[in-house]
Amino acid sequence: MDTQQNEFVETIIENKVATITFSHPASNSFPSTQLKNLTAQINDLNENDTVSVIILKSAGEGAFCAGASFDELLSVSTLEEGKEFFSGFANVINAMRTSKKLIIGRVQGKAVGGGVGLASACDYVFATDYAAVKLSELAIGIGPFVIEPAVSKKIGKTAMFQLTLAAHEWREAQWAFENGLYSEIFNSISDMDSALGVFAAKLTSYNPKALYEMKKVLWENTSHWETLLYERAAISGELVLSDFTKNALNQFKK
């Protein structure tokens, strides 16, 4: 488990690279406030001409992202609250999809649920051998409905269903690399960061307009996500109210 205690999302800009770092003491999980902050900071960079590339990373050397905040999921009491919470992930993915900047993911450790969704919504991902992945949503009575389009786009429907149905099983970083979720994997965080720095610097030397046009090609035929992801959020928002899910979440917390 991560040892950092602070909850934050912050952006640092240096040499045409904007590094967005998110942190939460519960293995870098996401309550709704964090999702809103991340969405806003991604969107704020769209018109910043001093930035060519975004690096998305989490704090610490443990988990990359544990997905949705269990505490907040347990507090959901109405359909509207449920839809609003899961719409937070929809907002982030759509912000990443429509961002005018290429987004490089830095995945130093395990990714669960929404964390897999975040990695999938990145345009290129550096990861370590410790960055195993799991979609545990079915085990708690819901499903990876909001993030599914991003995950399926990156690794395909077959691999997506392998992850989804094996809800209690971890898939190693090598599996994620072979299926296209990770672009490159490394033995250590230091090796990953060295390669990431070189890669990002090289991208900043390219024509920003050309990078943006390539990004639009990469995300062709996804404009319907503007409605699809929120329809999916409503499904998750309803399921999270079930006794099955409430009991499962309490068991996971224990």
Score class of each variant (00 low, 15 high):
134 K>Y: 04
59 A>E: 15
92 V>I: 15
136 S>C: 10
105 G>E: 09
246 K>R: 14
76 V>E: 06
143 G>R: 07
238 E>S: 15
75 S>F: 13
124 Y>K: 13
203 L>C: 05
130 Y>V: 08
200 A>N: 00
21 T>R: 13
88 G>W: 03
112 V>Y: 12
216 K>N: 00
181 L>E: 07
160 M>I: 03
88 G>T: 03
35 L>H: 11
115 G>P: 01
165 L>I: 15
39 T>F: 04
109 G>K: 09
64 F>E: 09
144 P>R: 13
155 I>C: 06
50 T>W: 07
74 L>D: 07
41 Q>Y: 14
38 L>Q: 11
63 A>N: 07
82 G>I: 15
16 K>N: 14
26 A>L: 13
168 H>R: 08
22 F>D: 00
142 I>F: 03
70 F>T: 15
192 M>K: 02
132 A>M: 11
108 Q>Y: 10
124 Y>E: 12
162 Q>K: 12
123 D>H: 15
42 I>W: 14
131 A>D: 08
46 N>E: 04
96 M>L: 13
90 A>P: 00
108 Q>C: 08
228 L>Y: 03
68 A>P: 13
51 V>A: 06
82 G>V: 14
148 E>K: 12
39 T>H: 08
179 N>T: 04
175 W>N: 00
23 S>G: 05
118 L>N: 03
105 G>Q: 04
173 A>E: 01
78 T>C: 12
62 G>P: 00
142 I>S: 04
143 G>V: 03
114 G>I: 02
35 L>S: 10
96 M>T: 06
